[in-house]
């Protein structure tokens, strides 16, 4: 709004302010548009356009096979809302989110506190705790599928050596989700760890020392000083982690590929299966949008909580 009026103001008198003037604001011109144009063009082509065509496809029976498509109104949306697979995969995504966010945040925090205290090991600890995060997901799943292997895997082998029973970590419905959560924690807790670590190292040492002089033990210092100072970081970590967990697909798909998948099929995988395995581009677009709605709702709720905390 303000931008536009100022442009008009500038244009109305034929000779506006002197160019050499030390005005705090530069005059508006089209130059800036040239700077943003390349990005905006890509943005329009690869984000805005598919967002709109996706909405369009959801109203048609567009097929991957390229068969002629027709307008079907809200049929896809009605079908999606009544499709038990949509709800079960959405539930899987939400269960995964609920199960994975706490360990991902707490493990990240724990590792950061350890690193912050045991400074002499700093380099080694940073490497150990963060290294998994730089691994490609397929490497992570190859390693963990092998670790979870019945009979000969590391975990079951160790359990057997201890005289304990075997667990079919990935094929038993009761454990498959937990196994994926454990792997995810190992893989990506390093990110939250870095955020916490950066925050911890931003706390001036004097704060601790003052508390120590007051006679606070290390546990009291943690509870009374450190954790309250980390509140903002925790809010940030929670926001990022929640959205990241909602978008789960890679490791779940790769770890339980070819297995009875209903128990660990996230909603994105159902989108993939409907659209590409089942050819139904139109229907998959409608399901995508249902998921989109969930993410937006989650973001709004978080934004509200987050901004309240900021105050």
């Amino acid at each position: 709004m303000t931008t536009r009026t100022s442009t008009e103001d500038a244009r109305a008198p034929s000779l506006p302010e002197p160019p050499g003037g030390t005005a705090p604001r530069r005059p508006a011109s089209w130059t800036g548009l040239w700077f943003v144009l390349p990005f905006v063009a890509c943005y329009a082509l690869f984000l805005v356009w598919p967002t709109l065509t996706g909405l369009g496809y959801s109203l048609t029976d567009q097929s991957l096979s390229g068969a002629p498509a027709g307008f079907v109104g809200l049929a896809n949306w009605q079908e999606a809302l009544a499709d038990p697979n949509v709800w079960s995969s959405l539930r899987n995504t939400l269960v995964f989110t609920a199960l994975s966010v706490p360990p991902l945040v707490l493990v990240g925090l724990g590792m950061a506190l350890l690193t912050d205290r045991a400074r002499r090991l700093g380099w080694f600890l940073r490497f150990a705790f963060f290294a998994p995060f730089v691994l490609p997901v397929a490497v992570v799943t190859l390693i963990w599928v092998w670790i979870y292997q019945p009979g000969i895997g590391l975990i079951n082998g160790t359990l057997a050596a201890l005289g304990l029973g075997e667990v079919n970590w990935l094929t038993d419905e009761r454990f498959a989700m937990l196994s994926v959560v454990a792997t995810t924690t190992w893989w990506t807790a390093g990110f939250n760890y870095l955020l916490y670590l950066a925050a911890l190292q931003g706390i001036p040492r004097e704060v601790h020392e003052a508390a120590a002089l007051d006679g606070a033990g290390s546990w009291q210092r943690l509870r009374g000083v450190t954790l309250p100072l980390l509140r903002r970081t925790t809010a940030l970590v929670l926001v990022l982690q929640l959205v990241a967990s909602l978008k789960v697909f890679d490791q779940m798909y790769l770890m339980t590929i070819g297995l009875p998948d209903a128990a660990t099929r996230p909603i994105i995988q159902y989108v993939y299966e409907s659209g590409f395995t089942g050819f139904r581009i139109g229907y998959a677009s409608a399901v995508s949008y249902l998921f989109f709605a969930v993410v937006i709702v989650a973001s709004i709720v978080q934004f509200r909580l987050f901004s309240r905390k900021e105050d």
Binding site: W30, T31, G32, L33, V48, Y57, L246, A284, S288, V295
Partner: peptide, 27 residues
Amino acid sequence: CRFPGRGWLFAVVVAGILVPPQVLIVP
């Protein structure tokens, strides 16, 4: 830079942060 439409264009770009790339795979 100040150019016409900067404000709303930036708002549109920032709104894109809310669109998860996962939603777009099919289209």
